[in-house]
């Protein structure tokens, strides 16, 4: 087994994981919200991209915004439905409601797209790059570049702009933010719409790497959990580094031990960290 090849695989996989987790990072770090339907939203993003390319005949570059639009709509509707729970900060109910949404999305997607697996092929995913004895695709390069740009832009927006300050203030103290004249509801709706767009973008870029199934959301979300918790709950830079580390771990574990149990092993790492430092990785709401 070529070590450098696994390193390349790990870096690509890591950026893919970080990209998938970005919506959750913002939800949690900026608005102190959770979404257990994240995996199904990823699945939906992948299928809308696939539908746009193979059924509507759209070019890949237009199928991506289509998927993101659908993501925004789903995120908005979800938050609209549970807005009262969000304002009450009833996290227990929010968790269950988002699980319910994930289940509905799964049923609706299977009904609309059919339950057979599909291959999402894009112009980039079919172009191979050989560099010495290393192999990757243009899709892989796109994933790495978009992930880095996205994280850099996000870090800038959260830390340096008015928009970022508003969102952080709402996370810190919703009541106080309301008193300060911030439209808290709009911030919550906006954050969820962003989560929908971000996960759809991630899906449009990452999903071409593997066959897509309408049932894949259930386990897809676990990667995001591991990234978010290991990265220090809600930290943008932390999520990026945790995604990268997890990608390298999964690539090497899959190559040298067992690909079937790679996710289980990543999860074991998470458990170990949580047992040693329960809550020790958590940062304050709105944290960076």
């Amino acid at each position: 087994m070529n070590l450098t090849q696994q390193l390349v695989n790990g870096i690509v996989l890591g950026h893919a994981y970080a990209l998938i987790a970005i919506g959750w990072t913002v939800l949690l770090g900026v608005a102190r919200l959770v979404n257990f339907g994240h995996g199904q939203m990823y699945m939906l993003g992948a299928f809308v991209t696939w539908y746009g390319i193979s059924r509507l005949g759209l070019p890949y570059i237009l199928a991506i915004p289509l998927a993101m639009l659908v993501g925004v709509a789903v995120g908005y509707v979800m938050q609209r439905v549970m807005l009262q729970l969000t304002l009450k900060q009833d996290l227990v109910s929010i968790m269950i409601v988002t699980l319910g949404f994930g289940y509905v999305l799964h049923g609706a997607a299977a009904l609309f797209f059919g339950s057979t697996g599909q291959i999402l092929s894009t112009p980039l995913s079919m172009e191979d790059v050989y560099w010495g004895d290393l192999w990757f695709t243009y899709q892989d390069i796109a994933i790495v570049i978009v992930a880095i740009l996205f994280f850099a832009a996000l870090k800038y927006i959260i830390d340096r702009t008015r928009l970022g300050r508003l969102a952080r203030m709402v996370a810190e103290d919703p009541q106080l933010a309301e008193l300060a004249g911030i439209n808290v509801k709009r911030v919550y709706l906006g954050v969820f719409a962003f989560e929908g767009a971000a996960v759809a973008l991630a899906a449009a870029l990452v999903a071409p790497r593997t066959p897509i199934l309408t049932s894949m959301g259930f386990d897809e979300v676990i990667i995001t959990f591991v990234v978010v918790v290991l990265g220090g709950i809600g930290s943008v830079l932390g999520s990026y580094l945790a995604g990268l580390a997890l990608g390298l771990f999964v690539a090497f574990f899959g190559a040298f031990v067992s690909p079937a149990y790679a996710m289980a092993a990543a999860f074991a790492v998470l458990i170990a960290v949580l047992v040693i430092r329960p809550g020790g990785l958590a940062v304050s709401p709105g944290g960076r």
């Binding site: 227990v92 968790m95 959990f225 709950i233 149990y261 999860f267 458990i271 809550g279």
Partner: peptide, 22 residues
């Protein structure tokens, strides 16, 4: 034992997914 709220739920969810894989 030390985990609460969503971290507790998140870990228990992950346990369910890992159990399914196994």
């Amino acid at each position: 034992l030390q985990l609460r709220e969503f971290v507790f739920s998140l870990v228990t969810y992950a346990v369910a997914v890992v159990a399914a894989t196994i």
